[in-house]
Amino acid sequence: MRLECHNLNFTYPGNTTAVINNLSFSMKNPGFKALFGPSGVGKTSLAKMIASSKFRGSKDIAIENMDTILYSYNLERLPGWSSTGNHLNKVTSSEKQSVKEQLIEIFELKDVLGSRFSQLSMGQQNRINLIRYLLQDFDLLIMDESLANVDEKLRETIILAIKELFSDKMFLYISHNLMEVSKFCSQILVFRKSLENKNSFVIKGQDCKKGYLLDKKQLDITMLEIMNAF
């Protein structure tokens, strides 16, 4: 699995300033990778370009061994005419039923499956939305703030469970939580607001897995590296 960009540029139609300016990076192998940086630097734009079939075949974006790329974001909604449990059942194939049950347990959503989407809290809405993506066939799942509004402890449990259950998949995690991306991601692409040529860096993260022992010194170094690149 490989995701690479070579001197990628992107400007929205009608704008004069480029959102993505001369971006180059390489990410390899399955696991959690992160896009990190302040708002408006082009993280979501890059994610949408990677997921879009229009850009996938271009010379600027190279993708190897990843046929299905899904992009999920935190403002998505489920239709309101039926309960969330019914919606989940409808989008889950029979061979993924056991994974579904497992995920519902881990994501702590068992009690809300009978409720409509609009009756859930924002954190519950984001979790139910993420589950339905995890139950699809994919090679790369882009999670654009998909765990926003979820408490820190549960977020950690969810990330560790996803890493364990989907160890052969690649995840591109967009988050504004420095500690989280440093701890759980293997590679962190840090965007900075700059007009210089070099406006991004890839930093190695701690890539903690279930039952991890945290090396606080190494984590501090990673966080400092990210902050310096910021």
């Binding site: 997921a51 899904l70 992009y71 999920s72 974001y73 403002l75 998505e76 909604r77 489920l78 239709p79 989008v91 939305n129 339905r132 993506y133 699809q136």
Partner: peptide, 12 residues
């Protein structure tokens, strides 16, 4: 878009 996105990207 917030509702349709999932069904479009998953081909449903």
């Amino acid at each position: 878009e917030d509702i349709e996105h999932f069904y479009i990207v998953t081909g449903r």
